[in-house]
């Protein structure tokens, strides 16, 4: 049996150039993080001067767990982040549903504008305006008597809603709008249709919306600084105060812990998702053979 000669495919130079640029970009993204991690094991208090005699060491990690200020701030941040994420998912889902499934309604343009603006609004403006809002509230109603975790949470929810709304909208836009109609047609009341069809459909979006809102809140320093009161310092606020004075080895240790924790989580979920996709693809291939 004779085969036609196999010609090598034409490979433009870009085929090499692009991956090279991508690799450079990724190196740019990861080298600073890598250096942060490496120097967290450095024994020297000078952080960037490697103390070859006593390193690597875990002493900064040990100190971290005895620093009550950091531990308290971290606990406060977790509580705020959880409340924020939960609130933002509820409100953001409502907004996303309304925008993508209700067609035209009065106030649609306003709602659309109000949900997209916080995505790009400079934090400093949002922070200032929310603080002034709380102060005006206090003058008018006596609440909030002091600014604390509650005011931080309210502020965080206000900008996290947008991210959830966008994720939910994208998910709903990618799915068939007639699914809910089909449920109604089959005799399900709107509430049943939402619970049994819409909710499972947008569940992945709700999960990623929750995680994103958690992260946004967990990371926020500018807005928190405006709306926090004395005695309610979140972890980013504590870190910010510390690093304004320069590098400090225990912050390196803290950063390493946080970054590896998040990276492990994201990696794991991506891998799980990929495995599910792959089994789905396999099932699809099987069904087409049959």
């Amino acid at each position: 049996m004779s085969r036609p000669p196999i010609r090598p495919p034409i490979r433009p130079r870009r085929a090499l150039l692009l991956p090279l640029l991508l690799a450079l970009g990724l190196a740019f993204l990861y080298l600073p993080i890598a250096s942060l991690i490496v120097y967290s094991f450095n024994a020297s208090r000078l952080v960037t001067v490697w103390d070859a005699v006593h390193s690597p060491t875990l002493k900064w990690y040990g100190e971290l767990f005895h620093n009550s200020q950091i531990l308290e701030a971290a606990w406060l941040s977790v509580r705020i982040a959880v409340m924020n994420a939960t609130g933002a998912v509820i409100l953001g889902t409502l907004a996303g549903m309304a925008l993508s499934r209700f067609g035209r309604f009065g106030g649609r343009a306003l709602l659309a504008a109000l949900t997209t603006a916080p995505l790009v609004m400079p934090e400093i403006i949002t922070g200032l305006s929310l603080l002034l809002l709380f102060i005006t509230f206090e003058q008018l109603t006596g609440w909030p008597a002091q600014r604390d975790a509650a005011t931080i949470t309210l502020a965080h929810i206000s900008f996290s809603i947008s991210y959830v709304a966008v994720i939910v909208q994208a998910r709903l836009a990618g799915s068939d709008g007639s699914l809910e109609e089909a449920a109604l047609d089959l005799g399900a009341r709107p509430s049943v249709a939402f619970r049994r069809i819409t909710l499972p459909l947008i569940a992945p979006a709700l999960l990623s919306g929750w995680l994103l809102s958690f992260t946004l809140s967990w990371d926020d320093v500018v807005i928190s600084q405006f709306v926090a009161g004395p005695g309610s310092s979140t972890l980013p606020m504590v870190i910010f105060a510390k690093v304004r004075l320069g590098v400090s080895p225990d912050v390196n240790a803290l950063a390493t812990l946080l970054i590896t924790l998040v990276a492990a989580g994201v990696l794991l979920s991506t891998l799980l998702l990929q495995r599910r996709e792959r089994s789905r693809a396999r099932a699809l291939a099987l069904s087409q053979e049959g």
Partner: peptide, 8 residues
């Protein structure tokens, strides 16, 4: 439905 609208 035209798209069948089967619940995925």
């Amino acid at each position: 439905f035209q798209s069948y609208a089967l619940f995925p």
